[in-house]
Nucleic acid binder design. Structure first.
Lengths: 339, 339
DNA sequence: CTGAGGTGATAAACCGGTATAGCTCCTGCA
DNA sequence: TGCAGGAGCTATACCGGTTTATCACCTCAG
């Protein structure tokens, strides 16, 4: 028998299809003896539910979706998504839920995907990343009544569940550390200005400056690319009163910045300290290895999966989970300023 | 009306469900006038097929799967998978096919996933990556009768469809280039020995050596990690007659190797030329920027998607598609040997 | 002895599509 | 005029599960 159905099991066990369904799903309606017999036969025939049939009857697909709206070119290097994916799957596979992944070019396309998924019943819920300031996706998902969990930001007035880390505290820990080393001119090469986490990090730097007696603490926004990271670094290092330390919002930009410094003859960490707000193998491959903020992205993904499943089970249950705080891994790219 | 079904459309159009199904799927059985009317009503009600219902009736899921069996740690950095994914999706979304992604730890787990997917009818076909020498997945997939396309290798005696690039020619182009520069001591830091492409590259180097008059052309295998790439480089550079050029099987290892060279005071490209067998932003961020073999991974993925869809449509049709040859992008890490 | 209530099961409807057998016209050809 | 054949459509079975209505049977309280 190629692929047994519950009808085959019912035949063999001498019971009805319904009884088999009850037994296999662990719900009342059959005696313990019958249940055990059915389970044994199912096992022996190596029966597996037909996902489409189950989805049709039970109106749940056992599948969730993740859409990433970034140009493919900028994707690969950051280990963030790979680790997030692994974590997500670790959380999902424990419940036999599968993951649909889609990479699109922009937010409009992303919303279109949600609409299609919702109308085709392809996923039970979705995971949102890269939250922007007035994110149109939140209203779209609310309108679609598609369960969702936001990663790395609040779901707007408690509307959507979320899993987030404290970017503010993390940024403060970096600035505090640099100030403690003696730095007073600290620059911040930030990411895309409309990302929520960019805003939070910029605000953290601005708020900390007076308390720490920083002379200057500019935040310069970029598009997260290595090119703009390099260009911004060049601009900063060409100033008369150039910063003695630069904090980069991503590891890729930090690496690009390090390259510019070397090229301009600015020694790291002698003349310039560099910190990356995100860790990866990249920062460790450099010479000097970069001091970086390490986040447990895998665990992040795992927790997001858990929260999403809770929300799918009970959509009224808006969870807002704060994950473990990131920690600063000090390496060779930071030192007291030279004089 | 929340989510219209074809029954709703049939009601509104005053025809039967069957007629609606015919019209929406563009098959004969209805007049052009009726078809147009039905399509218009469907459009206006913004109808979308329920994926599970369609899957159940038509026994096709409009979804394909990709399993990556690598530890999450080594995944993130290589842009290869991100680009491959983008390409795959570009090819699939043109046909409204979705992609299931799964990351597992090893090949056994991967085969388990295929078994589950097959028995649950979750995918119409799968894409295989990282083909090994006597790959157990090929027989497993054949037994499951699950359509598949192999990326970057032949599907074993023409059993499975495949999309592949000519690794041999690519490696020869690198070695030829280095020999033309004057190098006679060329080393090859290879990847995992049981990967088919590793074998092909090693063989290419070995075969080219006598023709080019190379004094020594050792291939040293690694696990593709930056750590082993670095360690192997250290070993090579510590030899009495150290190589004047090293070819690395991945960009990550090349970057790690560059770091070791700098650390040991070996100047690049003065004392040592470095070539990476794979290009990415990583190679461009380095100083010096690395000469690398560029492959159009996006296009690779797109073609793999096309081939897979062909195989799903007609499983007897075993396609073996050779993609565009990779090209060598010369940057700053290669030069004639110093004397 | 009767009726209420619970247990263990069955039969049938249902989910939303697709596939097929069959029916009704209409047309064209002998 | 009669009939074959095809176009256009309907009715219905079917895919493989889940869910509901119903029922037989047993137990126990009144």
């Amino acid at each position: 028998m190629a692929r047994p159905t519950i009808a085959d099991i019912a035949d063999k066990a001498g019971v009805s299809k319904g009884a088999v369904s009850f037994a296999l799903n662990g719900r009342p309606g059959v005696s313990d003896a019958t249940r055990a017999r059915i389970l044994q036969i199912a096992e022996q025939m190596s029966w597996r539910p037909h996902s489409a049939a189950r989805a049709l009857g039970a109106s749940r697909v056992d599948s969730v979706g993740l859409v990433i709206a970034r140009p493919a070119r900028t994707l690969g290097v950051e280990p963030f998504f790979a680790h997030l994916l692994s974590g997500l799957q670790s959380g999902l596979s424990a419940h036999s839920i599968s993951l649909q992944l889609l990479i699109v070019e922009n937010t409009e396309a992303e919303i279109e995907v949600y609409k299609r998924w919702a109308s085709e019943h392809r996923v039970d819920g979705v995971i949102l990343v890269d939250l922007t300031v007035r994110d149109p996706r939140i209203d779209a998902l609310r309108a679609l009544e598609l369960p969702a969990v936001v990663i790395g930001g609040r779901g707007g007035k408690g509307a959507l569940a979320s899993v987030w880390a404290d970017d503010r505290d993390a940024m403060l820990s970096i600035v505090d550390y640099l100030a403690a080393l003696g730095h007073r001119r600290i620059a911040h090469v930030a990411g895309t200005p409309n990302f929520q986490h960019t805003q939070r990090r910029i605000r953290a730097v601005r708020d900390a400056a007076p308390r720490l007696g920083l002379i200057d603490a500019p935040s310069l926004t970029t598009d997260f690319s290595d090119a703009e990271g390099a260009a911004t670094t060049r601009k900063l290092l060409s100033q008369a009163d150039r910063p003695t330390a630069i904090v980069y919002d991503s590891d890729v930009m930090a690496v690009a910045g390090l390259g510019v410094a070397m090229e301009m003859g600015v020694s790291v960490p002698g003349d310039l300290s560099i910190v990356a707000f995100d860790d990866s193998i990249l920062t460790q491959l450099m010479h000097p290895a970069l001091t970086a903020l390490s986040r447990d992205t895998f665990e992040f993904g795992r927790q997001a999966a858990e929260v999403l499943l809770e929300v799918i089970a009970d959509p009224t249950n808006v969870v807002n989970l704060r994950t473990a705080d990131p920690v600063l891994t000090v390496r060779e790219s930071t030192a007291p300023p030279s004089s």
